[in-house]
């Protein structure tokens, strides 16, 4: 009797989640998966085919964009990590505890406005007639304004900026649990700053680093707004190819195929990352 009640209770509370997952995520994906294996023949009928996937491999622009997106996403993840680690270390270990909360709020503050507004903020700063150019000209460092937008470096800057918080927060939470005396003990035993970083801090922080990296990598890979606005037409981000197929070419079948390729890519990279760092998903998600 009690057991039955328990099961019913579990079902009751899980139902919304399961329903939501099924209706909003699983069903559309099944539909997309089916769509990606179908094309329209000359008579306008939908038939089964691998053509959509073949197109991807036959047309260099597609797979080059794909590879470029993957490599840049990994680069963005790495850069975000390189910037986030010292920030997190500073907040957890260097500043006085009473300022920690304040600094965290400072980190969070930019995320209270939407990504769109933040990206436009960067554009105001970086464009040819923008704030930075204006001051560089005034200071006499530049003879004529340069266009800082629509470059790969600018796009990466934007992506790193957008991802920062998602890396800093998990690293802060793991560094919080790092006993200061471990750092002092290593220092006392003759280690220098770099050894402490690589032998003590990073090994301890690995679960947080990996979980932050997964989030940042996935967000970056699937980002549409920032590459599009800050990288412009040159950005060649794979999400734009998907967008083009769905909206511009109205070729939903091709678009679904691209979407699934991106999903496979992110799954493989995350799996590789976990294998390389010898972490498992269960530990990282905790």
């Amino acid at each position: 009797m009690l057991k039955g009640q328990k099961r019913w209770g579990l079902f009751f509370f899980l139902a919304p989640v399961v329903l939501w997952l099924f209706v909003m995520i699983v069903l559309p994906h099944i539909d997309l998966l089916i769509m990606s294996f179908r094309i329209e023949n000359d008579e306008g009928q939908q038939i089964w085919s691998l053509k959509n996937y073949l197109n991807f491999f036959e047309e260099p622009i597609y797979w080059l964009t794909f590879a470029r997106t993957a490599i840049y996403s990994i680069l963005v993840t790495f850069l975000t990590f390189v910037i986030a680690l010292p920030v997190a270390f500073y907040i957890t270990k260097v500043v006085k505890p009473k300022y920690q909360g304040f600094l965290l709020v400072l980190l969070l503050l930019p995320f209270w406005v939407s990504e769109l507004v933040r990206v436009y903020g960067w554009m105001i700063l970086l464009r040819e007639s923008g704030v930075i150019n204006h001051f560089l000209l005034k200071a006499g460092l530049l003879k004529q304004p340069i266009e800082m937008l629509y470059r790969d470096s600018t796009m990466i800057l934007g992506l790193v900026y957008t991802s920062m918080l998602f890396m800093v927060v998990p690293i802060i939470s793991v560094l919080d649990s790092l006993d200061n005396s471990l750092i002092e003990a290593a220092y006392d035993l003759g280690a220098n700053m770099w050894t402490i970083l690589f032998k003590i801090i990073i090994p301890h922080a690995t679960p947080g680093i990996v979980s932050g990296s997964i989030v940042v990598f996935m967000l970056t890979l699937g980002n549409y707004l920032t590459p599009n606005l800050m990288g412009g037409k040159n950005s060649l981000w794979f999400t734009e190819q998907i967008y083009n197929q769905f909206i511009a070419s109205f070729n939903w079948n091709q678009g679904s195929a691209f979407g699934f390729l991106l999903l496979v890519l992110s799954s493989i990279v995350v799996w590789l990352g976990l294998k390389l760092t010898r972490q498992n998903l269960k530990k990282v998600v905790q």
């Binding site: 471990l182 006392d188 035993l189 301890h204």
Partner: peptide, 29 residues
């Protein structure tokens, strides 16, 4: 600095490195 001094400190909670085994802990210095 402490890493250049000929003294070593045993901490109150020992501060053994959990990411290393016993041998690696001892070999650290």
């Amino acid at each position: 600095p402490p890493n250049k001094r000929p003294v070593n400190l045993i901490f109150q909670h020992l501060a053994l490195f959990p990411m290393m085994n016993v041998g690696e802990n001892i070999a650290f210095g």
